[in-house]
Design a protein around this nucleic acid. Structure first.
Length: 490
RNA sequence: GCCCUCAUCGUCUAGUCAGGUCUAGGACACAGGCCUUUCAAGCCUGGUACAUGGGUUCGAAUCCCGUUGAGGGCACCA
């Protein structure tokens, strides 16, 4: 039997990273089992439909490196894969259930239903349909007038769901509502559409968030009504924010696109997501796994059952690991869009600035947690800096006069250096520090502030080389002037 | 209110199914140190956890029951 799993999002906006983690599990399982991964769009709620959401979903999946064997953009033998294009099927199946006496028509108004629920809540009961139309003779509710079709849920007995991770979960039927299958607008509800599609599309395993557990018996009852064999279920726990609440916007980035824009590598995010709620076990102590290793090692039955808190700290660490593992060329390629986006370089990167960028890459590589960090780290290269406050130009345990002298000597050195390269600059600078009776750190600190405008910067001489002689000299000169003015004043 | 699920360091987890090798291992974060031109990176060291009460057993993080806590569900939403 070929394993067939699916991801069935609603096009209601950006897919949530918690849901994406569940997708990662599904995809990993499909690939490991040499099965099929199917993408199906569940757009049966016309009131929440968001334009372009399908594209957001597909491009997000692609960015994360998850492909699908059947679905939008790729087709397949079980299409269409968009539920709004399958409406006739759902209607027909709902009618079949009515004909079999497993479902019934109901024309209760929303107002009446709300009243019933209100009264039930007041009495402390679980709000549910009171069965008004269930007890009416068949045919009394006209098929030609607006109505819904409800499932006739048994009033007694239990429905047992077997969960791959939790074993049998028992539900009392009397606590289950007569679920609406077909809405009055002719669209199916989730329960009807998902059962029909999963069955018709030959889905063998359903991995979904555990927020679906409570409603699973409704769908199990539908399988039973149709006489279909239900798939294997595995309900995976939800992802929470740092405060233990369901992950949401206030916790930071939650959509794939936000993670991309913040400079996370897709392979790092994928690795992180796979390890959120799952671990290889067996004494394995590594945390970094390639996609292939994850496919090979993933074990659906070893998913942790407790909800997992999404840790940005750990993701940042992992992203840094992946960045450090990139080749210089590859890192440069990925960094360019972030420089462009920040307006530091033009979208069509001129060839003459390419050498500067190449110089920068090894300088920043081990300092990046995200690709976007490169902007703040290297902005002094691309944009003019304000003259640093004079106290930053005075070295540790030094006087203004000493500092001024040092700056002038550095200027001379920089102006006369035969090779304006990091290695060629460093030795003379160290020698200069020694000549002045300074520690290297004292001198370098002044120069760092003068040239980069920062107390913390990438390695000094690499930065100076990237900056170029002219700009370096200009900034040193401004520092010199600032110190002169300061000394004159005092 | 009713129903369901879950419970190991602050966080992600190994160990739980097949009780002893667990005075509970790793990673992130944190603290200290080394390296060092700043910051990183790297290396070394450190602290911190089996929610709780009972039971079963020679022996329980591991099995059973209760309690507490947390999460989820109870729509013409998915």
């Amino acid at each position: 039997m070929t394993v067939r799993v699916r991801f069935a999002p609603s096009p209601t906006g950006h897919p949530h990273i918690g849901n994406i983690r569940t997708v990662v599990f599904n995809w990993l399982f499909a690939r490991q089992q040499h099965g099929k991964f199917i993408l199906r769009i569940e757009d049966t709620d016309r009131t929440r439909y968001v334009e372009d959401a399908i594209h957001v979903i597909t491009s997000g999946l692609r960015w994360l490196g998850m492909d699908w064997d059947e679905g939008p953009e790729v087709g397949g033998d079980y299409g269409p894969y968009i539920q709004s294009q399958r409406l006739e099927l759902y209607r027909q199946k709902a009618e079949e259930l009515v004909a079999m006496g497993k479902a019934y028509r109901c024309d209760c108004s929303p107002e009446r239903l709300e009243q019933v629920r209100e009264a039930q809540r007041a009495r402390g009961e679980t709000p549910m349909y009171d069965g008004h139309c269930r007890n009416r003779p068949p045919g009394e509710v006209s098929p030609d007038k607006p109505h819904v079709i409800r499932l006739k849920v048994p009033r007694e007995g239990v429905t047992v769901m077997h969960d791959l991770l939790r074993g049998d979960i028992v539900f009392e039927n009397r606590l289950l509502d007569d679920q609406i299958l077909l809405k009055s607008d002719g669209f199916p509800t989730y329960h009807l559409a998902v059962v029909i599609d999963d069955h018709m599309m030959g889905i063998t395993h359903i991995m979904r968030g555990d927020d679906w557990i409570s409603s699973e018996p409704k769908r199990l009852l539908l399988y039973e009504a149709f006489g279909w064999e239900p798939p294997v279920y595995a309900h995976v726990p939800l992802v929470l924010g740092t405060d233990g609440k369901k992950l949401g916007k206030r916790h930071g980035a939650v959509s794939i696109d936000e993670f991309r824009r913040q400079g996370y590598l897709p392979e790092a995010l994928f690795n992180f997501l796979a390890l959120l709620g799952w671990a290889p076990g067996g004494g394995e102590e590594r945390e970094i796994f390639s996609r292939e290793e994850l496919i090979e090692r993933f074990d659906i039955t070893h998913i942790n059952l407790a909800p997992a808190v999404f840790s940005y700290d750990k993701l940042n660490w992992m992203n840094g690991c992946y960045i450090r593992a990139l080749s210089h060329d590859e890192l440069l390629r990925r960094l360019i869009p972030f420089w462009v986006e920040a307006g530091m370089i033009p979208p069509e990167v001129p060839v003459e600035i390419l050498p500067t960028l190449k110089l920068l890459v090894p300088l920043v590589q081990e300092r990046l947690k995200t690709l976007r960090d490169v902007v703040e780290l290297t902005d002094f290269i691309f944009t003019d800096i304000p003259v640093p406050p004079v106290e930053k130009l005075i070295g540790a345990k030094m006087t203004a006069e000493q500092s001024l002298d040092a700056i002038r000597r550095v200027q001379a050195l920089m102006a006369g250096a035969p090779h304006f390269e990091a290695e060629a600059l460093e030795m003379p600078m160290r020698q200069l520090a020694a000549d002045l009776g300074l520690k290297a750190g004292q001198l370098f600190g002044i120069v760092r502030n003068a040239v980069t405008g920062k107390e913390v910067s990438p390695p000094l001489f690499g930065s100076i080389e990237a900056l170029g002689r002219a700009t370096t000299l200009k900034r040193l000169e401004r520092a010199e002037e600032a110190l002169e003015a300061y000394i004159k004043q005092n």
